[in-house]
Design a protein around this nucleic acid. Structure first.
Length: 314
DNA sequence: AAAAGCCACAACCGCCTCCAG
DNA sequence: GCTGGAGGCGGTTGTGGCTTT
């Protein structure tokens, strides 16, 4: 049989509220308070159900509602709260004075969720969507300083793994072709000078005068989960890696153990569902604006189009 | 200029929890 | 302890306005 409806809907109006209805509801509540919502419509002379009245009041007519565009601060607050509370819109709204759960929910679905997706962030887990990542989007994230939960090294590391895996799978990328087609990449060391042992360890490609780690990081793959152990911390932002090192590392990996790539290939052939980051204290989002500026200027010195062209080999 | 598509958001629906009787 | 009503909540839909074709 199901549940009895909250009110008798025969003859009750639905749809958008008219200004006259709004005024009746406001006048009644200001005079008597809302009391029992079920009996309010009749007392206020409204042909609506109590539930409709309650929603109209709570989401639109309440005097303490702040209307208008969400500020960037409010947007950031919503994202942070959502990462902790999930779709508990009423709980999120309780921490944003003047905003209703319905308004926040709508704003999330129409604006924030889409923005996160465009940035490669899963709006449910607030983690990068590795199943959608490719080299150019990764680099765009780094180069244009878009919000991300991965730091530069992690992005480069994953980009290398993904790119290599896909190149191996499709057999479209030939080492010699790259070597011949690439112009001078500034500080890039030649592939012959790079070690070919695996697993890939980024510290092997580091010029100590440019950047350094306290500890090396690692990237573990198992079934649908990628775990990036971020046990490193940067001495300062100027010591972050330059994208040219991606090319170096990439070349080095092309000479490396096939078995690892076969393993990567099998792992990455199924969509990766999530990423677990440990100790992400080096996240650039925690940096000051000056540090970010310095950090970005390093990248814009690099030949971005040439690097991005590498994605065409995928 | 008209039709189609897209977007934002108010409003609705159904399920859940709480609590009084 | 059980029942049912009231309110709360989150997902979804309807619709009007704007943009694109």
């Amino acid at each position: 049989m199901g549940r009895v409806p909250c009110c008798d809907k025969n003859g009750l109006k639905k749809g958008p509220w008219t200004p006259e209805e709004d005024q009746k509801l406001i006048d009644y509540i200001q005079k008597h308070g809302h009391g029992t919502w079920r009996t309010l419509p009749k007392n206020a002379g409204l042909a609506r159900c109590g539930k409709s009245c309650r929603l109209r009041w709570a989401n639109y007519l309440r005097p303490d509602i702040k209307r208008g565009k969400f500020s960037s601060e409010e947007e950031e607050t919503i994202i942070q709260l959502h990462s902790v509370l999930g779709n508990k819109w009423s709980a999120v709204a309780a921490r944003l004075p003047g905003r209703t759960d319905n308004e926040i929910k709508n704003y999330w679905n129409t604006h924030i969720r889409k923005r996160l997706l465009r940035s490669g962030i899963d709006p449910v887990t607030h983690r990068p969507r590795l199943d959608l990542l490719n080299l150019s989007s990764l680099l765009n994230t780094v180069l244009f300083n878009q919000p991300t939960q991965l730091n530069t090294h992690e992005l480069l590391n994953i980009a290398i793994n993904l790119l290599q895996s896909q190149c191996q799978k499709q057999n479209l990328f030939k080492y010699n072709q790259v070597q011949e087609s690439q112009p001078n990449y500034g500080h890039r060391t030649t592939p012959q000078q790079l070690p070919s042992s695996l697993p890939y360890n980024p510290t092997q490609f580091i010029n100590a005068s440019q950047w350094q780690y306290n500890e090396a990081s690692s990237c573990n793959l198992s079934e649908n989960l990628v775990t990036v152990n971020n046990d490193l911390s940067y001495q300062n932002m100027d010591q972050l890696p330059k994208p040219s090192l991606l090319y170096d590392a990439f070349n080095a990996k092309l000479n490396s153990d096939q078995s690892l790539y076969n393993n990567l290939d099998s792992v990455l052939s199924t969509p990766v569902s999530s990423v677990t980051l440990n100790n992400s204290s080096a996240n650039i989002n925690n940096s000051t604006e000056d540090e970010k500026d310095s950090y970005c200027s390093n990248f814009f010195d690099f030949q971005i189009p040439d690097l991005l062209d590498m994605s065409e080999f995928i």
